[in-house]
């Protein structure tokens, strides 16, 4: 991989360069500041980087701001960005993920851990191919021509919605944090009811709008909390909220549904698009080990999908009962 490491400490840069070369045939460039990094990546003669390692705490422009700047460029919208952070920087880590980071490593480095994170990033690059097809953005204009419709069960990255991050990054966030400090975090999911039918009726662009608007509604309803959300595919969203937040999921679901209703959405052919989400069961993540943390995420996802199916079925049964009566 071609990697750019950015840190204001020359010792860290030297260590990172030495480590990465030891791990494999990586081509490593270094920058001592965010400004220098932007100069390097902005150079039209410069080849693309496959991965970035950014120190969070740097003077003037910090690593989080740099991460955000890189994500604003079309060249690096999906490139793995690993943040380098001291172990005590939990709040910074959350902000870094919100800004588009995909993973993080802690200083001082555990060499085996760094190797694992780099290998994960490498596997991600090797496995993804045409990444840009899987990005949904709020800042969409009119319906693009010949847009490829993503598979219903495929996780996609939603850009430009506060707190919404890539699914791969979300997995990294949960599995990494569970080693140290997921104290008080709660994970829960929402699933769009009747998603298969909505998917069938939607164009590629329409489905993108449906998912992005739902993400916006959930994000708006979680404002005031420290949270991260991801779209896991199949109309399901997973949220992790910090700080001992105990959600009243029924109330929150009503708020999200009201928010979606107020958006006054329509299919591309002009038909009214009216849909609702259903909540799964909230899972507390205190004292969960690494594997169990991901189990909690899976459970939150699963219960949301089950609840969406149950409520759809209940609604259908209700109409059948009404008709029979």
């Amino acid at each position: 991989m071609r990697i750019l490491a950015v840190d204001d400490d020359p010792i860290i840069l030297e260590l990172v360069a030495e480590l990465l070369v030891t791990f494999g045939h990586h081509d490593v460039d270094t920058a001592g500041s965010a400004a220098e990094a932007l100069e390097i990546v902005g150079d039209p003669q410069s080849d693309l980087y496959d991965c970035f390692l950014l120190d969070i705490q740097m003077p003037e422009m910090d690593g989080i701001q740099l991460c955000r700047k890189l994500r604003e460029t079309s060249r690096y919208v999906r490139t793995p960005i690993l943040m380098i952070t001291a172990m005590s920087d939990k709040a910074y880590i959350d902000n870094a993920f919100s800004a588009g980071a995909t993973d993080y490593v802690t200083k001082p480095f555990d060499i085996n851990e760094l190797r694992e994170r780099i290998t994960t990033a490498e596997a991600r690059i090797a496995g993804e191919g045409a990444l840009t097809k899987k990005i949904f953005a709020v800042s969409r204009g009119t319906e693009p021509q010949e847009q490829v419709k993503v598979a219903l069960n495929e996780p996609v990255t939603i850009m430009d919605v506060d707190g919404v991050i890539d699914y791969f990054a979300f997995e990294n966030y949960v599995s990494q944090l569970s080693r140290g400090s997921l104290f008080g975090s709660t994970v829960f999911g929402f699933a769009i009811r009747g998603i298969a039918s909505l998917y069938r009726q939607s164009t590629a662009f329409g489905f993108e709008c449906l998912i992005t608007d739902t993400a916006e509604a959930i994000s708006d309803c979680l404002q005031g909390n420290q949270f991260l959300i991801t779209y896991a595919g199949n109309g399901a969203f997973i949220c992790v909220v910090e700080g001992g937040y105990r959600p009243d999921l029924e109330r929150l679901t009503d708020m999200v549904n009201l928010c979606i209703h107020d958006m006054d959405l329509h299919f591309c052919d002009g038909r009214k698009l009216d849909f609702r989400v259903a909540p799964g069961e909230a899972q507390r993540m205190i004292w969960r080990g690494n594997g169990n943390a991901m189990e909690a995420v899976i459970l939150a996802h699963q219960t949301a999908e089950d609840e969406a199916l149950r409520r759809e079925k209940m609604q259908n049964d209700f109409w059948l009962t009404e008709r029979a009566g």
Partner: peptide, 8 residues
């Protein structure tokens, strides 16, 4: 900076 690199 010292805390970040010394341990490694």
């Amino acid at each position: 900076k010292i805390a970040g690199s010394a341990g490694t």
